[in-house]
């Protein structure tokens, strides 16, 4: 059975690999045949060469490693605040009925507003440094965390909590043994989405203003007309965000799957 599953996974992987190769070959031959200008879409091998050479590219201002570290640290700081401040705050707001009734609709109505309009205010207040990027990541990441936390708390069966209170008066025990495990899958989905939104916020902030980060590299290579480099940077950001998404997805699967429970 296991062997069959492995063969199936291998077949899926091979199908996707051949699909990507075929797609790249078509694009490459269309570029080579002059269907579009190499200025619009360069040859595929040029992009890959540029991508492989990114860490050693001396043309990049401050070097690729600096920008990669900058982006990763901005995302890490945003995620830390999301997990350490936003999530507990959302949880508290959702379990205290008065807060929930009064504040939740106000907060939810804020989420209908596109969060990127706050970025010019952040630029005004904090300049072009790391702070506005981290804050932008947090602002963009708040809605999913808040919504899913609130939904998770709604799903708690009050009978379980009441039963728990018959056995213990310790709120911490009720919290750790009943509230959190019963709503963990929903919370984790919110956190996973929050983290991927965080990445979006940080990259947007880097692209719009400032001189650091992978987002800045995309803007810079576009304005200086280094088109293969631009595509290589887009590929790098794609990989970073896909890695974040996959990592959080796997953690979610492991926790919900019961390995860490």
């Amino acid at each position: 059975m296991k062997r069959l599953l492995n063969l199936r996974t291998l077949r899926i992987l091979l199908t996707h690999l051949s699909f990507i190769i075929l797609l790249l070959l078509i694009i490459r031959s269309l570029t080579a045949a002059g269907y579009w200008s190499p200025f619009t879409l360069p040859l595929v091998e040029q992009i890959f060469l540029e991508f492989i050479n990114l860490p050693s590219n001396t043309l990049l201002p401050k070097g690729f490693t600096h920008h990669l570290t900058y982006t990763l640290s901005s995302i890490a700081a945003s995620v830390a605040v999301l997990l350490g401040v936003v999530f507990p705050f959302s949880f508290l707001l959702s379990i205290v009925r008065v807060f929930k009734q009064v504040l939740e609709p106000l907060i939810l109505s804020l989420f209908a507003i596109p969060s990127i309009i706050y970025y010019p205010i952040l630029l005004l207040l904090f300049g072009f440094g790391l702070e506005p990027k981290v804050l932008m990541g947090i602002i963009v990441g708040i809605p999913p965390v808040f919504i899913y936390t609130s939904t998770g708390v709604q799903l708690i069966n009050p009978n379980y909590a009441n039963l728990g209170f018959m056995y213990t008066r310790s709120f911490f025990k009720i919290f750790s043994k009943i509230l959190i495990p019963s709503t963990l899958p929903v919370f984790l989905t919110g956190i996973r989405l929050g983290i991927s939104y965080c990445v979006v916020g940080v990259i947007f902030a880097e692209m719009t203003a400032g001189g650091d980060g992978l987002g800045f590299l995309i803007s810079w290579s576009t304005t200086t007309l280094r088109i293969p480099l631009m595509y290589a940077c887009v590929l790098a950001v794609l990989l970073v965000s896909a890695a974040f998404y996959l990592a959080t997805y796997m953690v979610e699967k492991m926790v919900v799957g019961g390995r860490w429970r």
Binding site: H16, V199, V200, F204, I218, S221, M230, V234, A242
Partner: peptide, 24 residues
């Protein structure tokens, strides 16, 4: 075949594709 790629597009920062749209 295509849905995983579309799903991936929905979670990555879409703003990075803007320069490509400018060129296209």
């Amino acid at each position: 075949l295509l849905t995983p790629y579309i799903l991936l597009l929905s979670v990555v920062p879409k703003v990075i594709f803007f320069p490509i749209f400018v060129k296209l």
